[in-house]
Design a protein around this nucleic acid. Structure first.
Lengths: 211, 211
DNA sequence: ACCGGGGTGTTACCCGGGGTAACATCGTGG
DNA sequence: CCACGATGTTACCCCGGGTAACACCCCGGT
């Protein structure tokens, strides 16, 4: 049995463990699940990041391709955005544990950059950036805006999607609407509430010792 | 010297180390910086999360208060949003290392939830949620929308801010504009680019082994 | 039949980080 | 003077990532 198929088997095992124990599963546990011992894992993947990376690759390719496809769909812009949002949410909904893996930036990253976006998500951000750049007329600022928006939208969907996954406050469709509405400037368009002009704001600024 | 002042000293030391070495600084390193040894740290803070938590508290209180204040500012809505964005960006700009600390969710979190938003950021998200809920007329969906948007906006600013901090592609003011524009539906309002209807899209779907 | 190489696998170890137990020390109030 | 409670110490445990050194097994070449 040459390298490649073996690699697949090991990845399958790792996959099962992480599905079961979450992304913090130890190399020992993974090796055990595969019925072998650590050094073999290291032979195949170099280090933990290698393994996680390979695993991530696997699962992202699908989601990433799906998002990319959704971004290229020939739809009205709003529909396209909704389509992308729905694609992403459907993806993370299908495999929550794996999704957590994707989003966890490598913890022991000693290099200066503690990027908020894991590599997998950075790819999505780049997809979005590129799509915006090539599809939307933003004038002189296009490059800056597209890049900032790519990151921003990705982070927005990450955080909101995470919350949605955990609390399931509504259907996927509704969630898609909520996010699309935000992107569509509904925050700007909505009317003010008749705020009673700060009805004697209760002064209580610094009360540390909060839980 | 009673407990409290000592605690402060220790926190100061921890602060310096993290400022210098990033959030992954070891307890040993922190103890050394304080001129003492580990057990004392543990006496004061219980465990690492306790220390980090206390440190976080310290630094967040300022930023959180600032954001809260910005949210309550009696301005036109767009100006208020810009004000909040600028407050946040200014905050993370001032102390990057500490900011990284805030955003790093505890790595060894064995509980199922690997929340994308660190506790400090969750507080900000709640602030935003509350502000939207009490200031903007969103009809029947207000609760859902406010909550989803709170998370979403926080995540957006986190990701975009992170990128901005690392690459410094533009001035803070411009960045604020870019994000406010996104929130203001400029994505929706902009015209389509005259896309040449997919000029022979280069087919090359699954090409793994990417770096 | 013999050998060598590239795959498989193993045990046993190193290192470093979080966390703790047990002991020494100092200072202050009864 | 002593006891108590704080400060501090050394030395240790445990566990997880990562590696060294060695054993096996099969297959192809001479």
């Amino acid at each position: 049995m040459s390298r490649e198929p073996r690699r697949e088997q090991l990845l399958n095992a790792a996959d099962r463990v992480i599905q079961r124990e979450g992304p913090s599963a130890s190399m020992n546990a993974i090796a055990a699940e595969a019925g072998i011992t650590k050094p073999i894992l290291y032979r195949h993947f170099g280090d933990r990041n290698g393994l996680i990376g390979a695993l991530t690759e696997r699962h992202t390719s699908g989601l990433l391709a799906a998002v990319r496809a959704a971004l290229a769909e020939p739809l009205e812009r709003r529909d396209r955005v909704e389509h992308v949002l729905d694609t992403y949410l459907a993806g993370i909904e299908a495999r929550p544990q794996v999704y957590r893996l994707l989003t966890h930036p490598e913890p022991g990253d000693p290099s200066g950059a503690g990027n908020a976006l894991a590599p997998a998500l950075r790819q999505i951000a780049e997809e979005i950036t590129h799509a915006v750049q090539s599809q939307v007329d933003l004038g002189a600022d296009r490059d800056l805006l597209a890049e900032a928006w790519g990151r921003g939208i990705t982070g927005m969907v990450l955080a909101a999607g995470d919350w949605w996954l955990e609390t399931r406050p509504c259907s996927r469709t509704r969630m898609v609407q909520a996010l699309a509405d935000l992107l569509w400037g509904r925050l700007a368009a909505a009317a003010d509430l008749p705020t009673a002009v700060l009805p004697a704001a209760p002064a209580e600024p610094p009360s540390a010792e909060a839980t």
